[in-house]
């Protein structure tokens, strides 16, 4: 009976040979290079962040994190992400819905505008906000004008000493700007691929635009939307460049986690810097897990629809 067993194994070896025609040593070399690269540039730094953070023991780690300044940075980051992610979620869905389901003039211009935050440096986007909303910028000019339009507004702004730049609103604005494309970019191809016929069917059956959106469009894009939100959130929490320009680095007031890490690092408090950075790294890992989950659900939904 042994020969039978051998013949049964043969086709398997055959298919393997056909799918990869390279000799074994080439395959192993390529795999090794890829693994080495991943280890060196991804795993080692990730582990290093946690290792460095815990360098001086768990006590120091907890002390750094419970420091009021660190705590306020974490809070501000959560506030910025908590405002910008829901807003971008709404903007993104609106933009994707308009672009994928309707034809209108200026569609390409809108698409380009959505990509703008991806294509310009975050530092420059921060600078633009300083220019527009800074004390020396247009907002400052307006608040200090002798005869401003809408005097009540100028008065209100002055009475409440309203600031955007070097204050929390600026950080939120900058975060919104930088993370704007994530949700829309994720949804546009998905919605375009799904086409308009389900929406048309809903309309003919008597559904209003609102009902069509909630009952037909949204369920179809649910997982893609979650995926976009997760990516958007990751970037919102980790954004450095644009936020750095508008923040003014006021400790305990306008520092986010990334900015706090930088300050600690510049003060040669490496262990503290890594300890705070490990919080970001941890949030990133959670984000990745969520992303993987959403991706699988999305793929499953797509497979089911075909």
């Amino acid at each position: 009976m042994t020969p039978v067993a051998t013949t049964l194994h043969l086709p398997r070896a055959g298919t393997q040979r056909r799918s990869t025609s390279e000799p074994p040593w080439v395959r192993w070399l390529l795999i090794t290079i890829a693994l080495l690269f991943l280890t060196l540039f991804l795993f080692v730094p990730l582990i290093a962040v946690f290792a460095q953070g815990l360098n001086k023991g768990i006590g120091f780690y907890l002390k750094t994190l419970s420091d009021p300044l660190a705590w306020s940075a974490i809070k501000l980051t959560l506030i910025a992400a908590g405002i910008s992610v829901p807003l971008n979620c709404v903007f993104g869905v609106c933009a994707a819905w308009a672009i994928a389901k309707f034809d209108f003039r200026g569609k390409n211009i809108l698409l380009t505008l959505i990509d703008l935050p991806f294509s310009i440096s975050p530092v420059i986007s921060g600078m633009i906000y300083v220019l527009v909303f800074g004390a020396q910028g247009w907002l400052g000019l307006y608040m200090n004008a002798d005869k401003p339009w809408f005097p009540w507004l100028a008065q209100w702004l002055n009475v409440h000493d309203f600031h955007i730049i070097f204050a929390v609103p600026g950080i939120v604005l900058a975060t919104i700007f930088v993370t704007f494309p994530f949700v829309a970019r994720e949804l546009i191809p998905l919605m375009q691929a799904q086409g308009r016929t389900e929406e048309e069917a809903a309309r003919v059956l008597g559904a209003s635009g609102w009902q069509t959106f909630w009952r037909v469009t949204l369920p179809n894009i649910k997982w893609g939307l979650i995926y976009g939100v997760v990516l958007c959130n990751a970037r919102a929490m980790g954004e450095f460049g644009a936020v750095s320009v508008v923040s003014g680095h006021i400790r305990g007031e306008t520092n986010t986690i990334p900015l706090h890490v930088e300050i600690l690092y510049n003060e040669y408090n490496f262990t503290g810097a890594f300890a705070v950075a490990s919080v970001l790294a941890f949030l990133a890992l959670i984000t990745l897990a969520l992303k993987l989950w959403a991706e699988r659900k999305n793929a499953a939904l797509h497979a089911a629809s075909q």
């Binding site: 016929t197 389900e198 048309e200 069917a201 309309r203 059956l205 369920p219």
Partner: peptide, 20 residues
């Protein structure tokens, strides 16, 4: 009058059933 108020039944070429 918009499609939603015309009371016409429409069957699409590729059915357009709600997949969810």
């Amino acid at each position: 009058i918009p499609a939603s108020e015309r009371k016409a039944g429409f069957a699409f070429q590729h059915y357009a059933l709600f997949r969810h």
